[in-house]
Amino acid sequence: MRRSGRAAPAGDRHWRGKARLALNCALAFFALCLLVDWDAGSLTPLRALLWAALSARVFIVLLPHRVTAGPGWIAVCTPWRRHVVRTDALVAVRQYEGPSGGLVLRDAHGDRLELDPRVLAASPLLWHELETGTHRSLERGTLRHGADVVARLGHHIDDESARAVLRASGLS
């Protein structure tokens, strides 16, 4: 039972699994490097420390950004920074063309963040928070660029959800 009336922020429900995979890959890299170095007879404490540092770097590179959202905001946390944008005060929404198709959000306070739209498609609560905030921005008149991007992304997410339901029911 919650004590306050505030709801917990929505998050990427697949993030923990992706972070665990990144950790396992980094640990496997570390173990293989130690094993090869030991087999070659050249393993020293300094080299083991080097392999540990390289494995930590592999983990940081593979660790996905954590996306969370709440009423009127969305945040992307990297290992070094947390970027927060007010979704109820969006000024522009842009989407890169190409294989990654990154989504760039900019608010009236000058804050900016980038996120992968696949995270939104995989987490309906995140998408709901972004879509609700976008509608508020449109009502307030702050969103000048990108309403079509959000609509197009919404149609894409709805189509993917419908396909998933049809696949799960055996109709597709």
Results as ranks from 00 to 15, higher is better:
Trp15Ser: 09
Val93Glu: 10
Val85Ala: 04
Trp38Gln: 11
Asp111Met: 02
Leu62Ser: 11
Ile157Ser: 00
Gly101Asn: 06
Leu171Asn: 07
Ser100Leu: 08
Gly141Arg: 00
Asp39Met: 15
Arg20Thr: 07
Leu21Asp: 15
Leu143Glu: 03
Tyr96Ala: 14
Thr132Pro: 01
Cys25Gln: 12
Asp158Tyr: 10
Glu129Asn: 15
Asp37Phe: 11
Ala56Lys: 03
Ile157Asp: 00
Trp80Ser: 03
Leu138Lys: 13
Asp159Pro: 02
Leu43Asp: 03
His156Ser: 13
Gly170Lys: 07
Ala75Gln: 10
Leu63Gly: 07
Gly98Gln: 00
Leu43Asn: 02
Leu27Arg: 12
Pro9Gln: 06
Arg20Ser: 11
Ala168Gln: 06
Asp37Arg: 01
Gly11Ala: 14
Leu50Ile: 08
His109Cys: 13
Arg57Ala: 13
Pro9Gly: 12
Ile157Cys: 05
Leu63Trp: 00
Phe30Asn: 15
Trp38Arg: 12
Leu125Arg: 15
Ala121Asp: 00
Ala92Thr: 10
Leu113Lys: 01
Ile74Asp: 03
Asp116Leu: 03
Val84Phe: 08
Ile60Met: 15
Glu160Leu: 06
Asp88Gly: 00
His155Met: 14
Gly170Asn: 10
Arg3Gln: 15
Ala19Pro: 03
Cys25Ala: 13
Leu43Glu: 07
Ala168Asn: 09
Glu114Lys: 03
Leu49Val: 11
Leu138Tyr: 07
Leu171Ala: 09
Leu130Phe: 06
Val67Ile: 12
